[in-house]
Amino acid sequence: MKRLPTLLACTLLASVDAAAASRGSSTFRYKPGPDEERPVIIDATIGPQGSDFAMRLKFDRMPFGEECKQRCANVTLFLDTDASAQSGLLLPTKGPENGADLAVVIQGVREYKRQDAPAELNLRVKVRQLGSDTQSADGGELLADLNHRQDPERVQTDGTTVYLLIDATSALLPSAKKVRIIYHPAGGKAVQATIGGMLGDSSGRGVQIFKRGNWGRAPDAEPRKPRANPSGDNG
Rank of each mutant, 00 (worst) to 15 (best):
K2V: 11
R3C: 07
L7G: 07
L7M: 06
L8I: 07
T11V: 15
L12H: 06
L13R: 08
A14H: 00
S15H: 02
D17W: 03
D17K: 01
A18V: 03
A21S: 14
S22F: 07
S22Y: 09
R23H: 02
S25P: 14
S26E: 15
R29F: 11
P39Q: 04
I41R: 04
I42R: 11
A44D: 00
I46T: 09
P48N: 08
Q49V: 06
G50A: 13
G50I: 07
D52T: 06
A54N: 15
L57F: 05
K58S: 02
F59T: 10
F59A: 11
F59N: 09
M62T: 12
P63A: 08
P63Q: 11
F64G: 15
G65N: 01
G65L: 01
K69E: 10
A73R: 04
N74H: 10
N74L: 06
N74T: 06
V75E: 12
T76D: 14
L79Q: 12
D80C: 09
T81F: 00
T81L: 02
D82C: 09
A83N: 14
S84T: 06
L89F: 04
L91P: 08
T93Q: 12
T93P: 13
K94P: 01
G99V: 00
A100I: 00
V104M: 09
Q107A: 15
V109I: 05
V109G: 06
R110P: 04
R110H: 10
E111C: 13
D116F: 12
A117R: 13
A117Y: 13
A119C: 00
A119I: 01
A119W: 01
A119R: 03
E120H: 01
E120F: 00
E120P: 02
N122Y: 12
L123I: 01
R124C: 10
V125W: 14
R128W: 10
L130G: 03
G131K: 02
G131L: 02
G131V: 03
S132L: 12
T134H: 13
T134G: 09
S136D: 10
D138S: 10
D138P: 14
G139T: 05
G139F: 08
L142C: 11
D145H: 10
L146S: 03
L146C: 03
N147W: 05
N147T: 11
D151M: 04
P152C: 06
E153A: 05
E153N: 10
E153V: 09
D158Y: 08
G159R: 07
G159P: 05
T160D: 00
V162R: 06
Y163Q: 01
I166W: 04
I166F: 11
I166R: 12
S170R: 13
L172S: 15
L172K: 14
L172A: 15
S175V: 04
K178I: 07
V179D: 13
R180P: 03
R180H: 02
Y183M: 00
H184A: 13
A186D: 03
K189C: 08
A190L: 12
V191S: 03
V191F: 08
V191Q: 07
Q192I: 02
I195K: 09
G204V: 05
R205E: 05
R212W: 15
R212I: 15
N214E: 09
W215D: 11
A218S: 12
D220W: 13
D220I: 14
P223H: 12
P226C: 12
P226L: 11
S231R: 10
S231P: 15
S231M: 10
D233N: 04
D233M: 07
N234A: 15
